[in-house]
Write a protein that binds this DNA or RNA. Sequence first.
DNA 1: ACAATAATCTCGCTGAGCGAGAGAATAATC
DNA 2: GATTATTCTCTCGCTCAGCGAGATTATTGT
Lengths: 151, 151
Amino acid sequence: MDESEEPMQLVHLLRGLTVELDLFGAEFAGRHGLHPTDLRALIHLLDAARAGTVVTPGRLGEALRLNSAGTTGLIDRLERLGLIRRERDPADRRRVRLLVEDQAMELGQAFFGRLIADLVAAMGRFDAGELATARRFLLAMTEVVGAAREE
Amino acid sequence: MDESEEPMQLVHLLRGLTVELDLFGAEFAGRHGLHPTDLRALIHLLDAARAGTVVTPGRLGEALRLNSAGTTGLIDRLERLGLIRRERDPADRRRVRLLVEDQAMELGQAFFGRLIADLVAAMGRFDAGELATARRFLLAMTEVVGAAREE
DNA sequence: ACAATAATCTCGCTGAGCGAGAGAATAATC
DNA sequence: GATTATTCTCTCGCTCAGCGAGATTATTGT
């Protein structure tokens, strides 16, 4: 591993950025009585809600790599905090739908709002062509990591 | 939050990338009988080893946001796995130095090696100017997240 | 010598997540 | 249309990571 090469600098930057984001999330979670897993679940649920997708315990557990027992515990926790609600699916009554409460939206806003505003502001110092390059770069890196995950 | 804006796409890309990297790490850890925290500790120790820095339990715990009891447990685990070794500092004998074993280097190589090679290869499809832009971009984003962590 | 400070470890505990399997609803096969 | 197979969720008992409080050992200042 040659540290002097430019690509290695970029690899370290990528890693450093993910570390910072993780720490940011962990600290936010801690301040609000959540666990890192709870926050990840919340993010997933909010994304799904915005996309209009139905999330069931099974799907949530799969996304977070938890088994069914752990997933039940997670949902119990979030429900106890008043962030989500269980509701039987009337069509297929084996299923349970997970619905996010308004309080969860607000929490998500508190978490992301400020950070996103700051990130977008920082992006303002780049011109359109540079942002396009950054997007291409991030897409390429995401693709590589995704591919590496499939062995 | 307007999804159609280009900056928002970039924010989501950043988040998606960190998620992918986290999952990659978690899956690697699981396959090798490690916990996510163990892997993070290993990365920290390997970085320090390459930089020639002495790592003590106190410093490690601070970096990972663990208290002293949790840190002791973590070090016990890593030592039991033969990845690190404790050694009293002869200068200040209150201190313990954490030394990484060769096996840990190999594990780190197994973890990073392939992924880094793939990432660097993907960077080959960008010219020098584009890579410089990507670096500036990542630096700017890292700075914003870091600043946000300090309230 | 004798506090005061620093670094690490021990003890007891809480709780997240796992494995195994139960319970309830739906789908498939005869 | 009864019986078996399948799907989704939940319960139970357990393990172990990490916490709070405090003990232990080493160093530094007066």
